[in-house]
C-alpha cells in the first residue's frame, strides 16, 4: 500500500462512522454557521449599513460572510481535533487497533487531518451556496473560498491534534476552546476589520492563523486582495500545517508506540 492508500483507509473508516452519526453534527457544522450568517450578516448588517454605509467598501453582509466561513470551519476543526483524538488514543483506543496493521502513525495522523478537510469541503460548500443566495458572495472567485477554508481548518486541526495526543485527560480542552478559540473567533477580522482594534493589538492579528484564513476567504468571496498578500496568507497557513504535522507524527508515535 502506498502512503496515500493508507491515509485513504483511515478516511474510509471515518466516513463509515460518519454515515452512522452524521445527524448529530448537522447542527454545529451546517446550521449554526447559517444562523450566524442570518443574524449577523442580515440582521446586524442592516444596522451597520444604515449607519456607516459600508465596511471597507463592502456591504456588511459581504464583509462578514467570509469571516463567518473561516471562523466556523476553525471551530469544527478544533472540536474534531481535541476530544476525538483523546478517544482514539485513550478512551476508545481505535488508533491502537489501527497501528497493529500496516498503517503507521503517519497514516493515522494524516487520515484524521484529511477527514477533517473532507468534512470542511462539505460544510463550506453548503455555507457558500446559501450565502450566495442571500447575497453575501459577490465574486466569481468565490469557489476558491473552499480551499481557503480547508487550509484554515487544517492549520488548526494539525497542531491541535498534535497537542491532544500529548494529553492524558481532556481537562485542558475546555479552556482551549474558551481562552484560545473564542478570542480568535472574535478578534481575527471576522466581524470587523482588525484596523478597529487598538493599534498596539493590530500586529498580533498576524499571529492568528484564523486572520490569515479570513483574509484568504475574503479575497475569494469579494474578489479583492493583492496577489502578494494572498501568497503570504497561503504560505503562513501551509507553514503552520507543516509544523503541526511534523510535531503531530512525533506526539502520535510517543503516545501510540512507546
Amino acid at each position: 500500500m502506498t502512503a496515500l492508500t493508507m491515509v485513504g483507509r483511515v478516511v474510509e473508516r471515518q466516513s463509515r462512522v460518519y454515515r452512522r452519526v452524521w445527524r448529530g453534527s448537522v447542527f454545529s457544522a451546517f446550521l449554526a454557521p447559517l444562523m450566524f450568517l442570518a443574524a449577523i450578516g442580515l440582521g446586524l448588517g442592516g444596522l451597520v449599513d444604515k449607519s456607516s454605509g459600508e465596511v471597507d467598501g463592502l456591504s456588511y453582509l459581504v464583509f462578514v460572510t467570509p469571516g463567518l466561513l473561516a471562523a466556523s470551519v476553525m471551530q469544527t476543526a478544533t472540536g474534531e481535533s481535541l476530544w476525538p483524538i483523546m478517544a482514539g488514543t485513550k478512551w476508545l483506543r481505535t488508533f491502537h487497533g489501527m497501528l497493529a496493521t500496516p498503517l503507521g502513525v503517519a497514516a493515522i495522523f494524516g487520515g484524521h487531518v484529511t477527514w477533517v478537510a473532507i468534512r470542511i469541503i462539505l460544510s463550506s460548500s453548503v455555507f457558500l451556496a446559501v450565502a450566495a443566495l442571500l447575497g453575501g458572495v459577490v465574486s466569481a472567485w468565490a469557489p476558491l473560498a473552499i480551499p481557503a477554508a480547508v487550509l484554515t481548518a487544517v492549520a488548526f486541526a494539525a497542531p491541535l491534534s498534535a497537542y491532544a495526543a500529548t494529553q492524558d485527560t481532556d481537562l485542558t480542552f475546555g479552556p482551549i476552546m474558551r481562552l484560545v478559540v473564542q478570542p480568535l473567533f472574535l478578534f481575527s477580522g471576522t466581524f470587523f476589520p482588525v484596523e478597529q482594534l487598538p493599534s498596539w493589538l493590530q500586529p498580533l492579528a498576524a499571529l492568528s492563523p484564523l486572520w490569515h484564513g479570513v483574509e484568504l476567504c475574503r479575497a475569494a468571496t469579494t474578489g479583492q486582495g493583492s496577489a502578494p498578500a494572498i501568497l503570504v496568507h497561503v504560505l503562513v497557513l501551509l507553514a503552520v500545517i507543516a509544523a503541526g504535522s511534523a510535531v503531530g507524527v512525533r506526539t502520535f508515535k510517543r503516545r501510540l508506540a512507546p
Binding site: 492508500t5 473508516r13 452519526v21 481505535t94
Partner: peptide
C-alpha cells in the same frame, strides 16, 4: 481495541481494509 463506533461486521471489514 475493537472499534466501538462500528458494528461487528464493519469491525472486520474496515480492519481488513487497513491491510489493503
Amino acid at each position: 481495541t475493537l472499534d466501538t463506533e462500528l458494528t461487528v461486521w464493519d469491525n472486520l471489514v474496515i480492519y481488513g481494509r487497513y491491510f489493503g
